[in-house]
Design a protein around this nucleic acid. Structure first.
Lengths: 147, 147
DNA sequence: TCTCGATGTAATAATCGTTATTACATCTTG
DNA sequence: CAAGATGTAATAACGATTATTACATCGAGA
């Protein structure tokens, strides 16, 4: 199974806040238009990003803003905020391996350290990319459009 | 979403073939017992591993065997064989970003290279682990049980 | 202070992938 | 040919995702 599109949606949301935040009020309806995703889904993601302390959302008046310098928010922060995997565990394990089979009752001992290595590799790479990279490349591609 | 348990099941299957292959015939029913997973699911995974050239399955007589030296089969081979992610793409993208929004129509340009970096990090780590590691650690934990 | 536009959230449904299960055709060897 | 095993189709239960409607609530400005 793939990782939920909540992750790419969240990055898209940040790119919109970067790009349009000074000019427009970035509301869930605005973001729904840009992403082509239902505004309720957007609001759920905004809620998760807010709970993680990455953005603030103005009740009443509306609009989302980022709370930190962009180079202080990594892809890993976003990935964790939107809960892409259950319990933070990337791999789903079969639930009830046999306890009467020697392999079955040891499969977790055998596999867990290796799975953690793979998961760490993923998370470490996520941690090397920040929203400042997104801002830089967004500006680059938008300016190329205007040539 | 988590990665399908087909992956951990496949590793479990290889551990069983290593451990019991000399002594018993490793059939789908045997593996179903060890994993506590339905034999039809096991047969589907065996079919995927066979299609990838990693094992052979004897029709009629029954039983699965590995086709290569264990240190020549990596976790990445197994991961790809059991098709854990669609089209090999780890991250699910929202399908129809707006083409009338500058960010929407550039989001793939902005994000794709970064997502590929993360995916490569995962796959490179998967490639560093082989079934020989599984065999070694399986023997280790089974012998510790017999002390 | 009331209204308007926006957020927060509950409830429901459609869709999809996973996993379980039954059933049966087919294969190989004794 | 019989027995035991694989290959596979069909169906169902389940859970996560995503869409959608509805509405309570909030906050700023008229």
């Amino acid at each position: 199974m793939q990782i939920s599109s909540r992750f790419t949606l969240a990055i898209h949301i940040f790119a919109c806040i970067d790009t349009f935040g000074n000019e427009y009020k970035v509301t869930s309806d605005f973001l729904a238009g840009s992403t082509n995703v239902n505004p309720v889904i957007i609001r759920k993601i905004l809620g998760q990003l807010k709970a993680a302390g990455l953005i603030e959302v103005a009740r009443g008046t509306g609009g989302a803003t980022v709370t930190k310098p962009l180079d202080k928010i990594t892809f890993l922060d976003v990935y964790r905020a939107v809960e892409c995997v259950e319990n933070g565990e990337l791999f789903h394990f079969h639930e009830n391996p046999s306890t009467s089979c020697p392999v079955g009752r040891n499969i977790h001992h055998i596999l867990d350290d290796k799975i953690i290595r793979v998961q760490n590799a993923l998370e470490n790479e996520l941690a090397t990319i920040t929203l400042a990279d997104i801002k830089r490349d967004t500006e680059k591609y938008l300016s190329e459009e205007n040539k």
